[in-house]
Design a binder for these strands. Sequence first.
RNA 1: GUGGUCGUAGCUCAGCUGGUAGAGCACUCGGUUGUGGUCCGAGAUGUCGCGGGUUCGAGCCCCGUCGAUCACCCCA
Length: 427
Amino acid sequence: MAKFQPLQAPKGVSEYYPVRSAIFEFVRESLIGSAKSSGYQLMELPVFEDTELFKRGVGESTDVVSKEMYTFEDRGGRSITLRPEGTAGVMRSVIEHNLDRGQLPVKVWYSGAFFRAERPQAGRYRQFYQVGIEAIGVNDPEIDVEVIAVAARAFAGLGLKNYTLEITSLGDLESRERYTKELRTFIATLNLDEETARRAEINPLRLFDDKRDEIKSAMAKAPVLLEYLNESSLKHFERVQELLTVLAIPFTVNKRMVRGLDYYTGTAFEFVHHGLGAQSGIGGGGRYDGLMSQLGGAELSGIGFGIGVDRCVLACEAEGIALPSSFGIDLFIVPMSPAAKGASLELAERLRSLGLIVDIAYGDRSLKGGMKAADKSGAKYSLVLGDDELSTGTAALKNMKTGDQLSVTIASLHDVVRQEITNASHS
RNA sequence: GUGGUCGUAGCUCAGCUGGUAGAGCACUCGGUUGUGGUCCGAGAUGUCGCGGGUUCGAGCCCCGUCGAUCACCCCA
């Protein structure tokens, strides 16, 4: 007999299955809900795109593009890449379908899997999930703050507490160029090893992120980008800070914040959670001035963020956040006879169509087994249905938390359960 | 891609200097002929990650490989 290697998921992917999948769903739906509250609309895009899109959009010098993409040739000989981030695809679609010619700003949200071929680590996966939004076509500080507020409201809604918001401004293209020149001059005076010098060559800002003490202390003396902002960039950034204060969204200015993707300009921000490992960023984003035109669209500025769903799940777990009870089963039916099995299914379907979450003890289980199943399901109420109940049309509705039983007619079951749940949630 | 640690039951792990596997929890059934959670009793469950080597004998030693985990690079 041939032996089979047990099949396993590819390296570094995250999977969510019961019971933990409920937390994932809760987190994702909360994030999406926050975006919808601010008027963002769904953009459902392909998970793979022409490789060229990411090379041009994200930037060939970035690590993401140069060494972390899942790129392959399809049957037609086209170079295809599994999306490593969301913004480039959104821009492509906006341009392709001329959304930028309609009313501005274009406000969209997206959610789904993204792919980067990195060494897996806590909170970092090769396939990971993000919820993101983009607001394209308006360059107001007000919309910058709206975008940040969507994320802040989402995190607050999840019940997260142990995180901070860091913001900075990377300046417009002109300010940035002036600064980068100065920074390169400064870096040239440092005695760097070959590898570090090469990284600095690609993007000198990266050195601010180095974790080695000697580099950190050397970079403490480096010129700071914020001091090179021209007047309009500075004004914009100051207004963003004012508005965040008005909305009571706490933040700190991080003068040395680094963003990994090349397209960011102006406002940049990052939410950092303090209960995670090295991968502590739960969400981040910023403004991008040149991206649309670089991809062949109009000269429009945009701003957006990506939030890591996986990392938010880890953050919720780290903070011991409990799922809201609305995620649970309302009623669990335990049938006691062959006739009751069919009747239970019929009853369950009727209640389900009225909006209750209902499950049944399937299989030929003893009453005790059925009640155990009801208990394990976490259902709020249970109902035993046997031949007696079928003939009298009444049954005992049991509150699984208190153990109390209430005699109800099967016909009124929906109304009674609804009423009970409402009462319970108000007490 | 680089480095550290680790893979034994569904889960968490024990297994002495090599002598052919165990606990707790979970699961199923019963004690209670129609009521779960507690208690008591019984039962089922392992390619010891995979492949090779050393040995009379390998869960334990060696090599390789796959995976996990933590950190670096980088990022959600």
